[in-house]
């Protein structure tokens, strides 16, 4: 086995452990149950609306996966690393024959596996609700769900970056704030170019918006894209769009992980 294979095996050991810790945590089960409850609630709402059942289930279902996914991503991304430091479980792992970056990347890999499993699980539940109501899931929904997963993976990379140097609560707050800002880049950009035009604050805001992660591109249903409204019901983004969003998520997320590794390497575990 080559050096890369051995290195992957070590990261996989950490990832597997991270996955087990995550899925056995009751908080996670409760959050997933909330998402499913929201989908069930959409059935009730659907009954109240005339001929719009499928539409409402799709919209609320995707919103549920996204919102609870974000909460889960912040919980996992921040909790799993900070808890290692707080509970001192890391003291026993770092001296083992692995590199510090393998530990950190292994943790992230474990989060990726966990989050992918959860999004697939919630999507399957949504698909079940849709079929039960006589609708169908289709490729457009799959694209929307993949975009949500990409968003969550990027958010977890951002959360890991913060938790590699700061406390759990601060990390969750910073990452959460970045998500809110990243979801509202269009409004903030309009603000910078409108009210704040030609002020120092406006220019600063525009530069910041370019640097901060753009989470808006991952939740496109109902969004205004190049002056056309894109939704999962009619015109929706192409596979090419999903591909370019994936490249963005991987590039931005990759840079966050590199920064997290650099910070994590210098850290004293006291």
């Amino acid at each position: 086995m080559g050096a890369i294979g051995a290195s992957f095996n070590r990261m996989w050991a950490i990832a597997l452990n991270t996955f087990r810790e995550a899925v056995r945590n009751k908080v996670l089960a409760i959050l997933v149950m909330f998402a499913v409850a929201l989908m069930a609630f959409s059935l009730v709402l659907g009954q109240l609306s005339l001929h719009e059942e499928i539409r409402i289930i799709k919209d609320l279902g995707l919103a549920g996966i996204s919102i609870f996914g974000v909460v889960i991503a912040l919980f996992l991304g921040v909790n799993l690393l900070s808890k290692e430091l707080e509970r001192k479980t890391v003291y026993a792992i770092i001296p083992k024959p692995l590199h510090r970056h393998e530990f950190l990347l292994g943790k992230y890999l474990g989060l990726v596996v966990t989050m992918t499993a959860l999004v697939v699980l919630m999507s399957v539940v949504l698909w079940g609700f849709l079929v039960a109501q006589g609708g169908h899931h289709g490729v457009i929904m799959v694209r929307a769900e993949i975009l949500i997963l990409l968003e969550l993976l990027l958010l977890m990379a951002v959360a890991m970056l913060f938790s590699s140097f700061s406390s759990p609560w601060l990390s969750a707050m910073f990452a959460g704030a970045l998500w809110v800002i990243g979801r509202n880049t269009a409004e903030l950009e309009a603000f910078a170019q409108g009210k704040l035009e030609d002020t120092a604050g406006g220019s600063l805001l525009e530069v910041l918006l370019d640097l901060l992660p753009d989470f808006r591109m991952f939740f496109v249903s109902g969004a205004n894209f190049d002056e056309t409204v894109v939704s999962v019901h009619e015109s929706f983004v192409s596979w090419a769009y999903v591909g370019s969003a994936a490249v963005y998520a991987m590039t931005y997320g990759g840079m966050c992980l590199v920064a997290a590794v650099l910070l994590f390497r210098r850290r004293d575990f006291v």
């Binding site: 452990n17 087990r20 026993a92």
Partner: peptide, 14 residues
Amino acid sequence: IGYLPENPYFYDYL
């Protein structure tokens, strides 16, 4: 090398 940390703590759910 094998190392035992002071007052060790390990993962809750493992």
